[in-house]
Amino acid sequence: MKYLRIDSGKGYFSLNEKDWHELDSINKGDLLHIVSSGLENGFEMDDPKVGLIQNKAHEIIYHKLHGKLLELNEQRTRFRDESESLYKEALEKYRTT
């Protein structure tokens, strides 16, 4: 799923691939949503090539988030393995369904 996009020199984010918002309006709830969803489905983002984003503020936010999400994307398997093993024994023992 695509979360970050570059268009007409500006950076955009989306939570559903339909509605796109300028990057300087992103808040922590949005980021949390992107991270949670991306860990499940993978992160798709435009590559921030040099000079592509003219808006300086957008460029800074885009680069930072792109770096963070890229790193997280590489750790998705590890995240899934570790989160699946969380309280696994306990859940198996006390599970009711």
């Binding site: 300087d24 808040n27 300086k56 503020a57 460029e59 936010i61």
Partner: peptide, 13 residues
């Protein structure tokens, strides 16, 4: 993290 990132970006000029 979010507020410092946005603030840093807004000071780009």
């Amino acid at each position: 993290f979010m507020s410092s990132l946005l603030k840093h970006a807004s000071e780009s000029h």
